[in-house]
């Protein structure tokens, strides 16, 4: 009886292990924002793990890597012409939109990711932007969703790197994802999806901590925790700089 149970367990695990799995790692799991921070780069590398020899069925595998920043609500305003002047007329509050979204893949998404699989696994950015269907609902929420994506693409915080995940042989893959200079602090997530025939068959997730450090940290904390002292210090610095320049010029003219 015990032998039979063991046999069943063995069959079960080998059945699970039969499909290819993905394992991956990042060059760094923490990004420090220092005073001279001008962007950073994350190297993502990994492997497709198989319990069998590579065969013809591996031809339709795909790897998609996404890196995204903390989400927060954001207001989107739409301008309209009022008495000849362009003014913000309509607005919508997007319940949550990521501050950063990068997507890299081994090939065109139409080839390696089905729509159903995409909405199930939330792979592309449009699945990460949520608009509540409230009572004061907007006539066309999709227009606003597209606007958020377009505006963030223009700012360089949403981008796609189609075909930029490089496969080394049939097992290893790697890519570089560059983080822009206007990076917002928070907990970032990297997800690696393995797809087969357009279906996500495995995924792997890991975090990246993005933190201000040193002087940046100190200024930010002071501004938020002791805002009155921060305000007074700012004025003191301003007055001293003004006085310093005035004295300096007086000496120069002598």
């Amino acid at each position: 009886m015990i032998r039979f149970a063991l046999f069943l367990a063995l069959v079960a695990t080998s059945a699970l292990a039969e499909g290819p799995r993905v394992i991956a790692s990042l060059s760094q799991n923490a990004v420090a924002i220092t005073t001279d921070f001008s962007g950073s780069e994350i190297f993502v590398y990994g492997a497709i793990e198989r319990q069998r020899a590579i065969n013809y069925s591996d031809a339709n595998l795909g790897v998609i890597i996404t890196v995204f920043g903390p989400s927060s609500p954001v207001t989107v305003r739409k301008k309209d012409r009022v008495f000849g002047i362009w003014a913000n007329a309509e607005s919508a509050v997007i319940d949550s939109a990521p501050s950063f979204y990068a997507l890299a893949s081994t090939g065109p998404l139409v080839d390696i990711l089905s729509d159903a699989s995409n909405s199930r696994a939330n792979v592309t950015v449009d699945n990460s932007i949520h608009i509540a269907a409230g009572p004061r609902g907007i006539a066309d929420p999709d227009v606003y969703r597209e606007a958020v994506i377009r505006l963030n693409r223009d700012r360089g915080v949403y981008f796609d790197m189609i075909g930029e995940v490089e496969m080394v042989g049939k097992t290893l893959f790697q890519t570089h994802i560059s983080l822009p200079a206007n990076l917002v602090e928070g907990n970032y997530t990297a997800r690696i999806f393995l797809t087969k025939d357009g279906e996500v068959i495995d995924d792997f997730q890991t975090g990246i901590r993005v933190r201000k450090v040193g002087l940046e940290r100190w200024i930010y904390n002071l501004a938020h925790e002791n805002s009155l002292i921060y305000g007074l210090l700012s004025i003191l610095v301003a007055l001293m700089a003004g006085w310093g320049a005035s004295e300096m010029f007086r000496l120069l003219r002598r």
Partner: peptide, 29 residues
């Protein structure tokens, strides 16, 4: 105004201000 913005909105950026005022005070002279 600086104090009011610093305490109510936390939107005074000290690093930005220092860079601007270094140029600004010299320019004003």
């Amino acid at each position: 105004t600086t104090i009011l913005h610093a305490t109510q909105n936390q939107t005074v950026d000290a690093a930005l201000a220092v860079l601007l005022l270094l140029g600004g005070v010299v320019g004003a002279q």
